[in-house]
Design a protein around this nucleic acid. Structure first.
Ligand SMILES: [Zn+2]
Ligand SMILES: [Zn+2]
Ligand SMILES: [Zn+2]
Ligand SMILES: [Zn+2]
Lengths: 132, 132
DNA sequence: TAACAGTATGTAATAATATAACATTTACAA
DNA sequence: TTGTAAATGTTATATTATTACATACTGTTA
């Protein structure tokens, strides 16, 4: 059961921008792009990003300090994320593989730690870049 | 077959510090700690960190912008890394689980992408923090 | 040895990413 | 309608990381 979140004005502006871009966007690039819509300060961007991450509408690509729209169904509210990243063209896409997510969600070791969340980033060359 | 890298002076100072700390360290905290040993500027730290990451002596914890000494055997030169991170006390440890690493190293999907590297970060509560 | 290439260092300036602190406003339920 | 949580606006500042340029060291080869 997915809770419906009504996005606020700034959240909506910023989510729409990221979503339409189709790829990862960096915070200050987002800021630049929304200044004409009245969002003037970094903090306004970061606050919206924080919220959007929290509710699973976007994810942060940690290795790139960038944010991408969720391509699944808000990934159980961002608790289980996996991405493939091309190290040449920097194309990023979200991996949706139920075997993988089951495997990782059920993973446990003998550390006594209870895992409630994970983030996985694969790196390599995409189809295009491989054939160059 | 593991190539032996003779660390340079700065690399050695910085690796020893991180290694002895037993946990993740941030770049500017490293800088502060090595100033008495003659390393004065951020760039000197980042250059050593870059090299140490490259040769697999340390890893970057991307979600924390911090660096930790490799607890395995340089992890095939940093191509396959997994960590568990306590969200309460921020304790980090490197996961060494051959099933997991085999599973991830062999992972492929239908994207046509060839994966040569991955980084996985698990989050949760460690034993100590769970029982509080 | 001398010349060379590759790696490492030193230093200053600056770019890029992110948060603190405080004042105000809006949404909405009790 | 009043209380409360969430969101916004604004300024300043903290944190993380890189550019640019000059110099020095290390090991190999002519
Ligand atoms: Zn997602
Ligand atoms: Zn590519
Ligand atoms: Zn390692
Ligand atoms: Zn803990």
């Amino acid at each position: 059961m997915q809770k419906i979140h009504n996005l606020s004005k700034n959240q909506k502006i910023i989510f729409d921008l990221i979503d339409k871009s189709g790829g990862p966007m960096k915070a200050y690039s987002i800021l630049f792009n929304v200044q004409k819509r009245g969002i003037k300060a970094p903090l306004q961007v970061y606050r919206a990003l924080d919220k959007l991450v929290e509710i699973g509408k976007i994810h942060k690509i940690e290795s790139r300090n960038a944010f991408i729209a969720c391509q699944n169904s808000s990934c159980q509210v961002s608790k289980a994320t996996a991405f493939s990243i091309c190290e040449s063209c920097e194309n990023v896409s979200e991996i949706s593989n139920s075997k993988l997510s089951k495997y990782l969600s059920n993973f446990s070791d003998n550390s006594g730690m209870k895992y409630s969340k994970y983030n996985l980033e694969f790196f390599g060359l995409c189809k295009k870049c491989k054939s160059k």
